[in-house]
Amino acid sequence: MSAEKLRLDKYLWAIRIFKTRTQAAAACDTGKVKMNGAAVKAARAVGIGDVYEIKTEAKRWKIEVTGLLANRVQYTEAIKYYVDVTPEDDQQFNQRIAASFHTGKRPSKIGRPTKKERRDLDDFMQED
Rank of each mutant, 00 (worst) to 15 (best):
A3R: 13
E4K: 07
E4S: 10
K5I: 12
L8N: 02
L8Q: 01
D9P: 12
K10Y: 01
K10I: 01
Y11G: 00
W13C: 02
A14F: 00
I15R: 00
I15S: 00
R16K: 13
F18S: 09
F18Y: 14
T20N: 11
R21S: 09
Q23C: 06
A25L: 02
A25Y: 04
A26G: 04
C28Y: 05
T30A: 09
G31P: 11
G31H: 03
V33A: 03
M35C: 12
M35I: 09
M35E: 13
G37S: 04
A39W: 04
K41F: 01
A43Q: 07
A45E: 09
G47Y: 01
G47E: 14
I48P: 02
G49V: 07
G49I: 08
D50Q: 13
D50M: 12
E53Y: 09
K55R: 15
K55F: 03
K55S: 12
A58H: 06
A58F: 08
K59D: 03
R60H: 11
K62Y: 00
I63F: 06
V65T: 04
T66A: 05
G67S: 12
L69D: 00
L69I: 00
A70M: 02
R72H: 02
R72W: 01
V73Q: 10
Q74L: 09
Q74S: 15
Q74T: 14
Q74F: 08
Y75K: 13
Y75C: 02
T76W: 06
E77M: 06
I79S: 05
Y81T: 00
Y82A: 03
V83N: 12
V85D: 02
D89P: 10
D89V: 10
D90T: 04
D90G: 00
Q92R: 15
F93D: 10
R96T: 10
I97V: 15
A98P: 02
A98C: 03
A99D: 14
F101V: 14
H102L: 14
T103F: 09
T103V: 08
G104Y: 07
G104M: 06
G104Q: 08
K105F: 10
I110L: 11
G111F: 04
R112Q: 11
P113W: 05
P113I: 10
T114D: 08
K115Y: 07
K115I: 08
K115N: 12
K116S: 10
K116N: 07
K116M: 06
R118A: 05
R119S: 05
D120F: 10
D123A: 14
Q126L: 13
Q126K: 15
E127P: 01
E127W: 01
